[in-house]
């Protein structure tokens, strides 16, 4: 009966997201967990989160997935509807734990529907802070996503080999979007504690970006923001461009920007999925969500782009060179 009902609501849910129910074979005696992803299947970040989640949780829990698809359907109406649909699914299926990934699930599902609800909630992938969502709450715990900005900047200072009495100067090159402005502000805030000044160049289109890159070579280091939102961005041309015009060390916190950056400090999405899985298991074993402190991610991957390093004529410390992943 329950499965027939799930089949019925799934067609409605398909309007705003993608829903997959566990098979009958899977549903035997295990608790049920609903995983609500902000994005869609195929989005690299949330795929990594989901992989880490399922690796640890699949044997403990029958997992049902719901994909809000808010990366491709960006309108506020769609996001609200997806959050509503997810909530209706929760009401219908009454899972033992709800797990979410990334900000839109927190914003459009947890905040309007699940704060102090009966069902425990474990979030993951919320960027930088939970203050805007009012967390923690009695039924909510999770892991916050922070970019490894500090180690990235420290590596840049060391590599710049500036005189000890000279403060380093950096420039942030990204898209001219609200999200990038937020990112710039976080970098700037951390850089200030390291006595690094950070300017910003935010490009509207590809030409702006190329020109900005030339201008950036006047700084001690270049922080490569996201290219998401830059019109006519040509990745191949950008690769050639930076290789021809690189003079200074460039760095990024986004793995997809590694073709244009000499070093990278990027988050590990699986860490978020694994923590969410461990928290879910603890909750299923009787630990209250409120007793599990909110944490941030503590792991990152280090990358190097050897042609750009050579072009910048930068000597990184040996341990970084040995341990960092190489970008092809």
């Amino acid at each position: 009966m329950r499965n027939r009902f799930i089949g019925g609501v799934s067609s409605v849910l398909a309007l705003c997201g993608v829903f997959s129910a566990p098979t009958l074979a899977q549903s035997s005696n295990k608790p049920t967990c609903l995983y609500v992803a902000s994005y869609h299947v195929g989005y690299a970040w949330s795929d990594g989160v989901e992989r880490g989640l399922k690796d640890r949780l699949a044997e403990q829990c029958n997992i049902t997935e719901f994909y809000m698809d808010t990366k491709r359907k960006k309108s506020t109406e769609n996001k609200v509807a997806a959050g509503q649909a997810a909530y209706e699914l929760i009401q219908d299926t009454k899972p033992d734990v709800v797990i979410t990934s990334d900000d839109n699930a927190a914003k459009y599902l947890i905040v309007p529907h699940l704060v102090d609800a009966d069902v425990p909630v474990v979030f993951s992938g919320i960027n930088w802070t939970v203050e805007e969502y009012g967390f923690p709450a009695s039924n909510i715990t999770g892991i916050v996503e922070i970019a490894p900005i500090k180690p990235m900047l420290m590596e840049g200072v060391l590599a710049s080999k500036l005189p000890i009495d000279q403060a380093a100067r950096a420039v942030y090159l990204g898209a001219s979007t609200l999200s990038e402005i937020k990112n710039y502000n976080r970098v700037k805030s951390i850089a200030e504690k390291l006595e690094i000044t950070v300017d910003r160049i935010l490009a509207e289109d590809f030409d702006d970006w190329k020109e900005g890159y030339l201008l950036a070579q006047d700084y001690d280091m270049v922080v490569m923001g996201s290219n998401s939102g830059i019109a006519q961005f040509d990745a191949d041309a950008a690769t050639d461009w930076v290789l021809e015009n690189t003079e200074k060390l460039s760095m990024t916190n986004h793995e997809w920007m590694m073709p244009f950056s000499a070093i990278g400090y990027t988050k590990v999405p699986e860490e978020h999925g694994e923590w969410a899985a461990d928290s879910t298991i603890a909750i299923l074993n009787g630990v209250r969500a409120v007793d599990i402190p909110l944490v941030t991610n503590r792991r990152w991957d280090t990358w190097i782009n050897e042609p750009l390093l050579e072009a910048a004529e930068v000597n990184l410390n040996q341990s970084t060179l040995i341990n960092a992943k190489k970008h092809k």
């Binding site: 802070t129 939970v130 203050e131 967390f135 923690p136 916050v144 922070i146 209250r288 007793d291 402190p293 909110l294 944490v295 941030t296 503590r298």
Partner: peptide, 18 residues
């Protein structure tokens, strides 16, 4: 600020709760 967002100096009571 270091990421332990709800960090408070606490005591663990006799039930093992913070």
């Amino acid at each position: 600020e270091q990421g332990l967002f709800n960090f408070k100096i606490s005591d663990i009571n006799i039930k093992g709760l913070s």
